[in-house]
Simulated scan of single mutants.
Amino acid sequence: MSNHPSEADARLPHTRASLAADLLALGVRPGSTLLVHASLKPVGYIAGGPHALVLALRDALGPDGTLVVPTHTPDNSDPAVWQAPPVPAEWWPVIRDNMPGFDPAVTPSRWMGAMAEVVRTWPGAQRSDHPQVSFAALGRLATEVVYGQPRSGMLGPDSPLGKIYGLDGDVLLLGVGHDSNTSLHLAEYRQPSAPNARLGAAVQTADGDREWVWWEDVDLDEGDFELLGTDFEATGAARVGRVGGALSRLMSQRAAVDFAERWMAENRKP
């Protein structure tokens, strides 16, 4: 993020204390499990940057709360399906043979934002070992949330998303839209006609070597999540407000996923 205040942000520089106050005013529940998707740019200037934001989130959650973030590695995937940008077919075997195996202790997340990386590298952080859609967590239930994420069914009921659902956790979209709401994928696993896809990634083996693995999973599609999220907000089930300068949305994950299950059944065509 830029370290300079924007002209649009009329308040004083945001601080750990002011951001924690904003989070509590929005409705963050002390002691809860909270999955956060965040973009720092809309927040505006923060004294201390993403580090201060993580401290503010932990302050709002309190000593019994659990902070969860996505630490996905979408570039660790089959290059044959890459679109942004695509790569030549002659590159595919080279990439599959040489992509470093995913190591939850050291592999950085990609395109998840600076805050997610701060959480991932925080002392005591726990991270799931899925090679494409891992999550990191800090707090009382961190290990329970991230442990045992299956390779197939990667965002399904046995994933960290499913664990958060079972814990009646919340989702915070901090400066991002509903297209970033990974929890909505959980509803796709409940669709009886959900299409499947063949996925691949490089993993680290028990002896420290690496190998390329394949698995079958639901063919996930967030293309209609903005429309779905707009309809969900229209029910009044999401709390909308500012965290710093960022328009943010806080919601019960269960409420969002249950709504998405019904919405997909009615609006997605087989």
Rank of each mutant, 00 (worst) to 15 (best):
H130A: 09
G49C: 04
P157G: 15
A80K: 03
W215K: 07
T182G: 11
K41N: 10
D258Y: 13
V145E: 12
D129R: 09
H37P: 00
G200Q: 09
V118N: 00
T71S: 12
L161F: 14
L53I: 11
I46P: 00
R262P: 00
A234W: 02
S134R: 01
E117K: 09
V94K: 06
P160Y: 09
G49T: 03
L174F: 03
D9S: 12
H185P: 05
E7D: 14
T15M: 02
G31D: 07
S2E: 08
R198H: 08
Q83Y: 10
V171T: 12
S77N: 12
A125E: 03
Q149A: 12
V171Q: 05
A234V: 02
F232L: 06
L247I: 11
E226W: 02
R16Y: 01
G241I: 04
L199G: 00
A105K: 15
G153F: 06
Y165P: 00
L141I: 02
P85I: 05
V81L: 13
R120T: 03
S159C: 14
A206V: 12
W91I: 02
D168W: 06
T33W: 02
E216I: 09
Y165M: 14
L23N: 05
G241E: 10
P74R: 11
I95H: 05
D179H: 13
R198Y: 01
M251L: 13
G175R: 03
W92F: 07
W92C: 06
Y165R: 08
D64L: 11
A201I: 10
L141V: 03
A234I: 01
S32Q: 07
R268T: 05
A194D: 15
P86F: 04
V68W: 02
T107G: 07
G200I: 11
R242E: 14
L67W: 04
E261Q: 11
D219G: 04
